[in-house]
């Protein structure tokens, strides 16, 4: 079956005001096309809620809610319990939080949800900074990247969310990239088939924040995987499996060089 045939032909995130070439909006769009009309989306403060919910321009065609910034996972827990109590079946509770909403302010609530093993799909769209507020450093900003609060390049390494998540003993976790859309689609599908908490961390470049052209989003997301900066892997039964081996690990410098955020900072990157 062609990968596109796995998707609902309808668009569920459409007419939004994301910047042209936004990787985050692609991650949200595709996940909803996998999950279909019975997905209930929760989005905290962040790019995707800011661009999707400007009354009366409402860009989600399924049920969707903006949660408090720190509370994506907690709202999802309540939604899941409430719908189950109403006797609903065959629905998906999906969350889309950015890197800051996940690894920083929303980490505690996410930890609580995984601890309870609530039946939810949590998707972190990682654009590696607080892009909605104008490109400030988050816990997932990589070493050396310039943001508006790290004008000389970030001095700290990107948090290892995979390790944090797997330490909870989650039923399913995966990393993904909007540059490898087939792999991402397969992972969202798989998450939808597993009971308990699922976590997918998808690298979603931001042309505005990364200093790339709007047509380079997908390319750079693919290159991150190919040079080995972003590993595609999934976690099941306590074991991580690598899905796609880096093709060009020797070209990592090119990956950094083509992004404005790493240029002329004079600071080293995570890879040297």
């Amino acid at each position: 079956m062609a990968v596109a045939d796995k998707l609902d032909a309808r668009e569920f995130f459409f007419g939004h005001k994301a910047c042209a070439g936004c990787g985050g909006s692609l991650a949200v769009r595709i996940a909803l096309k996998v999950l279909g009309e019975r997905a209930v989306a929760t989005l905290p403060a962040g790019c995707m809620s800011a661009v999707g919910f400007n009354f009366p321009q409402l860009a989600f065609t399924n049920n969707a809610f903006i949660s408090p910034f720190a509370a994506t996972a907690s709202v999802m827990t309540g939604l899941e319990a409430g719908l189950r109590r109403r006797g609903e079946t065959d629905y998906h509770i999906v969350g889309f939080a950015g890197d800051g909403g996940t690894a920083d302010i929303g980490l505690q609530a996410l930890s609580g949800a995984i601890d309870r093993n609530d039946n939810i799909i949590y998707i972190c769209y990682d654009n590696e900074a607080y892009m909605n507020t104008g490109i400030q450093k988050s816990g997932l900003t990589p070493l050396g990247a310039r943001t508006t609060t790290t004008p000389g390049g970030s001095r700290s390494r990107k948090k290892d969310m995979s390790a944090i998540i797997d330490a909870h003993g989650i039923p399913y976790a995966a990393t993904a990239s909007v540059g490898y859309i087939d792999d991402y689609i397969r992972k969202v599908e798989k998450a939808a088939s597993i009971k308990g908490t699922k976590y997918i961390h998808v690298l979603a470049p931001c042309p505005t924040g990364w200093g790339i052209a709007t047509d380079e989003t997908v390319e750079i997301a693919r290159e991150a995987v190919d040079v080995g900066v972003w590993e595609l892997k999934e976690y099941e039964n306590g074991i991580w499996t690598t899905n796609i081996e880096p093709k060009n690990p020797d070209r990592v410098e090119e990956y950094y060089a083509r992004q404005g955020r790493f240029r002329n900072t004079g600071r080293k990157t995570q890879n040297g």
């Binding site: 596109a4 032909a9 692609l26």
Partner: peptide, 30 residues
């Protein structure tokens, strides 16, 4: 192009919705 469009403005039949296309160019590269 349909798969990678961040705005969902290219239909599975490959028709562009010019009301909502932002012209990012991802489709051309894809």
């Amino acid at each position: 192009c349909y798969l990678y469009c961040p705005d969902g403005t290219i239909s599975p039949e490959i028709a562009v919705d010019y009301d909502f296309c932002k012209g990012c160019g991802i489709c051309a590269k894809a």
